[in-house]
Simulated scan of single mutants.
Amino acid sequence: MAEQSVDGAATEESLAKKMKAIEPEEASKVADSVHDTALRLSSFQMTRILNVNSMRKQLMVEGTFKGQESPAIVIMEKKVFPEDDIFLKRGFFNEGTIIRKVYSNDVYGNYECFPTREHNGLNVTIIHPASQKHLDKFSRKELYLVNETYEIYESVTLPYLESNSFSLQWVDNILSHKAEYDKIIYEDKDKEKGFIMLPDLKWDGTLASLDILVLAKKRIKSLRELNDSHLPLLRNIRDTGTDVIKKKYNLSSSQLRIYLHYQPSYYHLHVHFSYLMHEVPGIHCEKAHLISTVINNIEIVPDYYQKAVLSFVVKENDPLCKKYQESGVLTVIDSQTEI
């Protein structure tokens, strides 16, 4: 959505989805976004570091762009190393490469290395204008594990989500072909078991980091709503999705991680397909549910997800975390211990 990092919960969620998470009342502000200008990062003035994720080599900072009053979030992440033959022939080092010895011991040596500019690139995500919810999401917070029964879901989680969830307009735009139509990899137009398959925005396009998103045509909030009536949809997503990836990217089903998040970063049913060798955010046991396991659970117990206890992480000071505290679901002691 956790990952062992400065802020595991934040890194477990797709940054691309957060970037799209604009509430209805804030939609008008997008017209003043820096994305509509000739963007210059030299005009970005940092005001504070929101988070550092050492595992993902990621830095998130808040600041402002020159001429803009509203805050922005800039997320910088080290690029994945290439694996193609052209890279091998061209090489990684040259005369301009700087290397400094840190220490050596027997056959092992530790060095600092500074390759040429071509290999020092970053993947950068910019959110502007950034709302307070965006700033809160990307700021470092302590994490707590919630064991949610279906009764807790109905009495605490669902009422909160219905009154505070982000707009799903961007999802509807994709489903209605108003946006990202040129990115669609595959589409099944069936109203009940159909879906749209497209690259996740955080995927850089390399096979090594394959990350594909599937959006169900039917409006289903999350894993919690699934039952045996949804098995045709889930099987279609799994089977057709793997066939498409096999034909287009030459990866078999056994090389794919196919999963749903709970809690998801937005409440329209979606499934992630990622290359098994690529450790994407949000694949840990307190976040990800393999689609094969989901299907099997429902085949055994048709209303499994209306009976099961689902565990997930919430962040300290998050409004939902406070709701769990107020209802007695979660007790936080000295901001460090939860019972």
Results as ranks from 00 to 15, higher is better:
197 M>C: 05
269 L>Y: 05
261 H>D: 00
179 A>G: 04
188 D>M: 07
189 K>P: 08
237 I>A: 09
221 K>H: 09
286 E>A: 06
288 A>R: 03
284 H>I: 01
176 S>I: 06
261 H>M: 02
271 V>Q: 00
174 I>A: 11
178 K>C: 00
285 C>Y: 05
229 S>M: 04
249 Y>D: 12
280 V>M: 03
177 H>D: 11
181 Y>N: 05
184 I>C: 13
281 P>L: 00
289 H>P: 02
200 D>A: 13
288 A>D: 01
209 S>V: 07
275 Y>W: 12
174 I>H: 12
219 R>L: 13
281 P>S: 10
233 L>I: 04
222 S>V: 05
266 Y>F: 15
213 L>C: 04
207 L>V: 06
195 F>S: 02
265 S>G: 09
261 H>C: 03
191 K>L: 04
229 S>G: 00
207 L>H: 07
289 H>Y: 13
257 R>C: 08
221 K>W: 07
189 K>S: 12
261 H>T: 01
268 H>I: 06
184 I>G: 13
277 M>F: 07
204 D>V: 07
195 F>N: 02
254 S>C: 04
190 D>T: 03
269 L>D: 08
174 I>S: 10
289 H>L: 00
191 K>V: 05
249 Y>R: 11
226 L>I: 05
224 R>M: 06
193 K>H: 14
174 I>E: 04
212 I>E: 01
278 H>I: 03
250 N>G: 03
255 Q>V: 03
268 H>V: 08
246 K>I: 06
281 P>M: 03
189 K>R: 14
210 L>V: 15
272 H>I: 10
246 K>W: 11
218 K>H: 10
256 L>E: 01
256 L>Y: 06
230 H>D: 09
267 Y>I: 04
290 L>Q: 10
244 V>M: 12
252 S>N: 15
240 T>G: 04
247 K>V: 12
251 L>V: 15
266 Y>N: 10
290 L>M: 14
214 V>S: 08
182 D>E: 12
257 R>S: 07
254 S>A: 03
175 L>Q: 01
232 P>K: 11
194 G>S: 02
208 A>N: 09
177 H>P: 00
173 N>R: 08
260 L>V: 12
237 I>D: 14
238 R>D: 00
181 Y>S: 14
259 Y>G: 01
179 A>Q: 09
272 H>R: 05
207 L>S: 08
259 Y>W: 05
218 K>R: 14
264 P>G: 11
240 T>L: 13
206 T>W: 02
268 H>C: 12
188 D>C: 14
231 L>M: 05
194 G>A: 05
198 L>E: 10
258 I>A: 01
205 G>E: 10
202 K>G: 03
254 S>E: 13
189 K>T: 15
225 E>K: 01
197 M>W: 08
196 I>P: 05
202 K>P: 02
202 K>H: 09
192 E>G: 08
247 K>W: 09
253 S>M: 10
223 L>S: 04
276 L>D: 02
206 T>H: 09
267 Y>P: 08
182 D>T: 05
199 P>M: 12
195 F>R: 00
199 P>E: 10
265 S>H: 00
234 L>C: 04
262 Y>W: 15
225 E>S: 09
280 V>E: 01
249 Y>T: 03
274 S>Y: 01
244 V>S: 08
264 P>F: 13
218 K>E: 14
237 I>G: 09
201 L>D: 13
181 Y>R: 10
247 K>A: 12
226 L>H: 07
220 I>E: 06
269 L>H: 04
253 S>Y: 05
247 K>M: 15
231 L>C: 14
174 I>G: 09
235 R>I: 00
267 Y>L: 07
